[in-house]
């Protein structure tokens, strides 16, 4: 180590790497931090909640301690009818907060001001992002005006309207409750994103897969799971192309039921052991009957069982249909 040229060399390696990191990380960070959340970003953030990947609240990625999305026809507190219906995001006690409740700056100029002012997100009590709150919180997306511009913002409906998680959940009922966050967890865990991208390309995807996203469409999302290896249709706007729950049901159970040439794996195991009526699903029998159908020995394929309300497939379909 006595030779000065090696000290110089080491310093130059550090200098070069440092410079490269200044250009590729420090400088873009100003652009990226100035992104203003769009309505799409707020809805995605509130419905997905805190990081979908490995975390303390859900270390095994089972989809537990996750927010619920509900569609309300009436105000859970006053009973006043809503037209059109209002979407609310229920964070029960112990469910980690969405990331930008703790870091409102990342909402972007205007959205931050509105969320902290009209939306009262600063009043979320004990807003530790990891452990959630003691009483739970209900959020909605509000529409306000900032500097003459219409912007969506996060509204803490528990503070502004006095909604509690339990009352909101009861008002919505199971039919209007969507397990979008758990569904995105399934998307990540089952590796759907190894084939289905979430990024329509700026050059040619407009007509088939919909508009490519804007700068502010991702604020508060982790992971973004764009995907890189598209072996299947892009899903960012899939809910706008196909909103049929029945089609999804058939397609997930065995994609070859609706598209004979599909190479998608069967996700029948997400149904679990029992169907909606509580009967045990006989997968072996189903497969034998399907094979008969595929070989032309049956005219119709066997019936796909209805999923149970607490099955994983319900959450996954909820999430897929939420991608508008």
């Amino acid at each position: 180590m006595a030779f000065k040229e090696y000290r110089l060399g080491s310093a130059m390696v550090g200098g070069a790497l440092g410079l490269s990191m200044i250009i590729t990380i420090f400088m873009p960070s100003f652009d990226l931090r100035s992104a203003v959340s769009t309505k799409m970003a707020l809805e995605k953030q509130l419905s997905a909640g805190f990081d979908i990947g490995f975390g303390y609240a859900d270390p095994l990625l089972l989809g537990i301690n996750r927010p619920l999305t509900v569609v309300l026809d009436a105000d859970p507190k006053t009973g006043a009818k809503f037209d059109p219906p209002v979407t609310a995001y229920i964070y029960k006690p112990g469910v980690p907060m969405p990331p930008n409740i703790r870091h409102p700056h990342d909402l972007g100029k205007g959205v931050q001001d509105l969320s902290e002012g009209l939306g009262q997100i600063g009043s979320v009590s004990g807003s530790n992002h990891r452990v959630g709150t003691r009483e739970g919180v209900v959020f909605t997306v509000g529409l306000g005006e900032f500097d003459g511009e219409e912007l969506s913002y996060i509204e803490n409906a528990s503070a502004t309207r006095g909604w509690t998680p339990d009352a909101t959940l009861a008002a919505a009922g199971d039919k209007n409750t969507f397990k979008i966050s758990q569904g995105k967890t399934e998307f990540v865990v089952q590796g759907c994103w190894w084939c289905h991208t979430l990024l329509p390309e700026q050059t040619q995807d407009w007509q088939v897969f919909g508009a490519p996203p804007y700068l502010g469409d991702f604020n508060g999302e982790n992971p973004t799971a764009f995907g890189s290896d598209r072996k299947a249709p892009d899903l960012l706007h899939v809910g706008s192309r196909n909103s049929s729950r029945e089609w999804m049901l058939l397609h997930f159970f065995n994609p070859r039921l609706v598209q004979v040439n599909s190479i998608m794996p069967r996700f029948d195991y997400l149904w679990g052991e029992k169907d909606a009526q509580g009967n045990v699903i006989d997968y072996d029998k189903w497969r034998v009957e399907y094979l008969d159908y595929a070989n032309g020995k049956r005219v119709y394929p066997p019936e796909v069982p209805d999923y149970a309300p607490d099955s994983e497939i319900r959450a996954l379909i909820d999430w897929v249909l939420s991608l508008k």
Partner: peptide, 25 residues
């Protein structure tokens, strides 16, 4: 250094395009 910085979205819960960009960084 790459692993330290590249995994910062997980350590520090970065979100959005910052997360996407650092993933590919």
């Amino acid at each position: 250094i790459v692993l330290l910085v590249g995994n910062s979205p997980e350590y520090f819960h970065l979100t959005g395009l910052s997360e996407a960009y650092l993933t590919w960084w």
